[in-house]
Computed example of a mutant assay.
Amino acid sequence: MLTFRQLEAFYWAAKLGNFTRAAQRMKVTQSAVSLRIGELEQILGVELFHRGRRNPVMTHRGEEMLKFAEQILRLGTEAQERVSRAELVPDFLRIGFAEVISYTWLSKFVETVRQKYPKTSFFLEEALVEEVFASLKRGSIDLALVADIPAGQDVHAVPLGSVEFAFMASPLLGVPKRRCKPSDLRKWPIITLSNKSIIFAMINDWFGQGGAQAGSSYTCKSIHVAGVLARRGLGVALLPVRLYAQDIRRKTLSVIAVDPPLPALKFAALSSISNLDPFIREVANLAALASDFEK
């Protein structure tokens, strides 16, 4: 019969890419990892890895088995936490989040978590999406509430919904009301965020689709500042429509119709795949419940 030790060795070897890293993660020898995986293969009667390369590569059967191993290990960890050591809830929860969340449902989320885990303290950090994601990769935060990161980034993602963004400008700027192409919009200054930000990437991608580049620009670190500059007529900014609905109604900002259209920005609660703590996954699910983004 297969054991948790065998499944754990296989899981970490698959996720971390080689037996050495798996051994370091499990605090055992590499030979112990190899032995446990070999035992698992013997029990299953199939090869889980292609050997003979510098880093082992999973077979088709290995990829199939990984899904089951992850589920079994997660259930085992959850059972241990909830039944054997249910009282061991972390004293401290570190959460990083994107600016748009702080203006929408962050307080509702924090209140929900605090009601369920009243003894847990919070460290809350607002930053650019890329900065929050980097903190997650370093292990300096437990959960990241940010724009969804593409697959292959070694994270577990719980969808939070999407946010509509639009190019906006003050009517004083004189941007025409007709649908604008990238070649049209490059005539006005573009207000953007850091060149490592999702907003910067969205703007560049949009101009690139039209074979153009943005003209002159102002760079700032927050959506709020970008909105202030746009409201003053200093340029065109890419802003979340929901947060600037009042400006649109008051006509202090106008939405610029564009071609090609801009995609909505998807958000997710991200945790590291190396963190199997069910508490973090449960908090991520609470974030999904608290989120009022479009779903």
Rank of each mutant, 00 (worst) to 15 (best):
P90C: 06
D91R: 13
E87I: 12
Q80H: 06
R114L: 05
K116N: 12
K119H: 10
S84R: 10
A98E: 01
A86N: 14
A79F: 07
F109G: 02
Y117D: 01
R114C: 03
R82H: 02
F97P: 00
F109W: 13
A86Y: 08
W105E: 12
V100Y: 06
R82D: 05
S84Y: 11
K119V: 10
Y117H: 10
R114G: 05
S84N: 12
E81A: 05
Q80A: 07
R114E: 02
K116S: 12
K116H: 12
D91G: 13
L93T: 02
S84C: 06
E99Y: 07
I95V: 14
T77C: 01
G96Y: 00
S107R: 14
E87N: 11
V110G: 03
E78I: 01
V113E: 12
I95W: 06
S107K: 13
F97L: 13
L88H: 07
V113M: 12
T104D: 14
V83K: 09
E111V: 07
W105N: 03
F97A: 05
G96I: 10
E87D: 13
R114D: 03
I95F: 05
Q80L: 07
R94L: 05
I95Q: 05
A98M: 02
T77R: 04
I101E: 03
T112M: 14
F109I: 06
R114F: 05
Y117C: 00
A98N: 06
F97H: 10
R82F: 00
F92T: 15
T112A: 14
S107A: 14
V89C: 03
A86L: 05
Y103C: 13
I101M: 09
R94E: 09
E99F: 08
F109D: 05
G96N: 04
E81G: 00
P118F: 13
S102E: 14
K108I: 08
E111C: 09
W105Y: 14
E78A: 14
G96V: 09
W105R: 01
R114Q: 13
V100C: 11
K108H: 14
R85T: 10
R82I: 02
A98F: 09
T112K: 11
Q115P: 00
W105I: 04
T104M: 06
T112F: 11
S84I: 11
E81N: 08
R85M: 05
A86G: 15
F97N: 00
V83S: 06
F92P: 03
S84G: 04
L93Y: 08
Y117T: 01
Q115A: 15
T104N: 12
T77N: 07
P118R: 03
L88C: 07
V83C: 07
V113W: 11
S102I: 08
S107E: 15
K116F: 11
L93H: 04
A98I: 03
T112C: 06
Y117I: 01
Q115R: 15
I95P: 04
K116M: 13
E78T: 07
V83R: 08
V89S: 02
Q80R: 03
Y103L: 15
R82Y: 00
S102C: 09
I95K: 03
V110W: 10
L106R: 08
P118N: 08
Q115L: 13
E111H: 07
S107D: 15
F109H: 06
E87F: 09
Q80P: 00
D91V: 06
F109N: 06
Y103R: 15
I101P: 01
E87T: 15
V89D: 00
Q80S: 10
T104Y: 07
R82L: 11
P90E: 06
L106N: 04
V110E: 04
V110D: 02
